[in-house]
Design a protein around this nucleic acid. Structure first.
Lengths: 234, 234
DNA sequence: GCAAAAGTGTTATCGCTACACCCATGT
DNA sequence: ACATGGGTGTAGCGATAACACTTTTGC
């Protein structure tokens, strides 16, 4: 592609303030959680908010989102996916700002608590989300609905669990996502039938006296599974 | 929400050139089609391209996309959905431009040919898409993949067909989307079992001597169907 | 009367759902 | 020994997939 001087051609065009906001989900073995932050700058300082920042011309939107995640959670290899844009004219009380929302899934256990406290952050249960600034409640609503619909056909659950996890843990996660109790025999049968998990010899005894075997998600096997035309469902 | 003067707070922030590009799909009763345009401005004038425009601070991204669609196709009530953002630093050879891609489904038959010709536009078959400017081929690829995955659980097919259509037409459309032949008895059985179509007394004889009954999509019934917890699938 | 597409039913198979008991272990 | 959660198998049902023939009508 040849470099062309187009500054004359594009010069009449208005530029726009652009931000990214991150919806950060976690799972603490019992409930789905959302990470929220006390806003540190005016306007609306002190209110609960998603974490976000403005985007500049030297970074992609993904990069901007990754940077925010790193600064606020200390994590750098997290699941990150574009949600959608928010561009209502008056969505920011100050100036016209268009925001691109990203949603990310993190493992609470890998999580750097120090950083969180520095940012005045807090994990909220899904059923207890406070009023947020601007249109952030709408973003959260959209993100939760995307989380639920994505969970049906993509194995996102594994992004929220530790590297090693038990079948009952995985089941509780899916019960939280789908908001309904699942039959444990059928759940186990189904998930194992996909043949995408590796059983370890270790047991997790935190949940019971007997202890439950720990499994790992095998991405290679998952790729094969998909390649064979299978669908990850339920 | 109180209006606050934030121009001081936000004033240090860089603004960005923002564009929208539209991926326009159609269906001519035999094949899925993509509407492409000969670019009218430098750089890359004369090359095939998606239709797009810059966004200004007095419009939402949706509005910008709607405006483009109206100007280029003459249609105003078309299906329109955000695809994703494209923000690579050097995606535009001139200046840094972030683009938000929208994908839309239109009924070819309601279509204002005059306008299309004015814009130097052409319908291309999916399997015959030319090289496009910038990252537009990537956008098209993403859009096609979204079309296919969306078709599975949402009744988007009806956006591409005339208001009245026959079951065989609908089936051909889904065969194009899924890229595989479907069994006509099972297809008819399934789609009618959803009870979301209204049979008219008219026949379309363009496809056969016998003629096939025309049906209409009933959005009310579809809402009931969804409300009952059903899934539109296949 | 024949070619070409529309329309119609049945059967076998497979996958999902529902359901109850034993196991291992810490206390 | 008992309480707690982990782990296992089966039978019935419903949905899907496979499959062939009749109908209508323009030519």
């Amino acid at each position: 592609m040849h470099k062309i001087n187009t500054s004359i051609l594009y010069s009449g065009q208005e530029k726009i303030l652009l931000a990214v906001d991150c919806i950060i989900f976690g799972f603490d073995s019992h409930k789905l959680k959302l990470l929220l932050f006390k806003r540190k700058v005016e306007p609306l300082k002190g209110e609960w908010s998603l974490i976000g920042s403005f985007v500049n011309n030297q970074q992609t939107l993904q990069d901007a989102a990754k940077e925010i995640l790193y600064k606020s959670t200390g994590l750098s290899n997290v699941y990150l996916d574009e949600l959608k844009t928010y561009s209502k004219l008056d969505r920011d009380p100050g100036e016209r700002v268009i925001s691109v929302a990203y949603f990310s899934l993190i493992r609470i256990n890998e999580f750097d608590i120090e950083n969180v406290e520095k940012y005045d952050a807090h994990w909220f249960d899904f059923d207890n989300i406070p009023n947020l600034i601007l249109d952030h409640n709408e973003m959260v609503k959209d993100a939760i609905s995307k989380l639920r619909s994505k969970a049906i056909y993509q194995p996102i659950g594994f992004e929220l669990l530790p590297e090693k996890f038990t079948i009952p843990q995985l089941q509780i996660l899916y019960e939280c996502v789908y908001q309904q109790k699942l039959d444990d025999r059928n759940f186990r049968k189904k998930i194992l039938s996909f043949d995408i998990l590796t059983k370890t010899t270790e047991k997790d005894k935190s949940g019971s006296k007997k202890g439950a075997f720990l499994y790992m998600f095998d991405n290679e096997k998952y790729k094969e599974f998909v390649a064979k035309g299978n669908n990850f469902e339920l």
